[in-house]
């Protein structure tokens, strides 16, 4: 065990692992590009749907159950299938990642909207805000913490699933894991796993840190 640990340490301290197109910075960058592009596209699709369902109250059943469906979908299977059916390129991988990130964001956005106090919404309409103004001035700010939580969960999920890109011959942090396993180089695989875990945790923490300053001040109950 101690020996393995030393080997992993050696891997991390080897200079050539940190430079060039296969180096750690490049692979972290590639992985983040996959994840961020897929999450942003998914958010552009999911958030309007969630807001629409939340504002009108129509389609609530769909919004509530979508995340369950998303959870049940075997993500690697979906990515591999998309890749195999439509042309062995990055595009189907992106499509699959987007597909997997949409449900949880729709559900959370809807949940945030549904949690807006009925009286507050009623009063907003009652003092003369139009439907559009109610949405942007009242509902969205109040639902924001949950919407953001949905984006965060989706991001982490996409980061995890994006490792499959390496399995299919592309880059990203899955590269070290799959190469390590294929070459029976356990140290490399473990180093890759550590990197993957660190990147995911760091991203999660960064998004959590963003959550607080982006929450409207009146909703931060702690400053009572």
């Amino acid at each position: 065990m101690g020996e393995l640990f030393a080997e992993i340490l050696r891997w991390f301290t080897t200079g050539e692992h940190w430079s060039g197109p296969d180096g750690v910075p490049a692979q972290v960058g590639t992985h983040l590009v996959y994840s961020v592009v897929a999450t942003v596209i998914a958010a552009l699709i999911a958030l309007p749907i969630g807001l629409l369902i939340g504002h009108t109250g129509r389609g609530a059943f769909l919004a509530i159950n979508l995340s369950g469906f998303g959870r049940a979908l075997p993500s690697f299977g979906v990515v591999i299938l998309a890749f195999q059916l439509s042309g062995l390129s990055l595009v189907p991988i992106y499509l699959a990642l987007v597909l997997l990130a949409v449900p949880v964001m729709v559900t959370n956005t809807y949940a945030g909207m549904a949690a807006v106090d009925h009286d507050v919404r009623d009063a907003a309409r009652g003092v003369g805000l139009t439907g559009w103004q109610v949405l942007w001035q009242v509902e969205v700010p109040l639902a924001f913490p949950l919407i953001l939580a949905g984006v965060r969960i989706a991001t982490i999920q996409v980061v995890a699933t994006a490792t499959i890109a390496a399995y299919l011959g592309f880059g990203g942090l899955g590269r070290y894991v799959f190469d390590g396993l294929a070459q029976r180089d356990l140290a490399q695989a473990l180093a890759g796993a550590v990197l993957l875990a660190v990147v995911a945790i760091a991203l999660d923490q960064a998004l959590r840190a963003l959550q607080k300053p982006l929450t409207p001040r009146g909703l931060r109950r702690s400053n009572r």
């Binding site: 995890a160 894991v177 890759g192 993957l196 875990a197 995911a200």
Partner: peptide, 12 residues
């Protein structure tokens, strides 16, 4: 938060 690929590998 740890991706499943990473967790399985770390348990190897």
């Amino acid at each position: 938060t740890i991706p499943s690929v990473a967790l399985f590998t770390l348990l190897l």
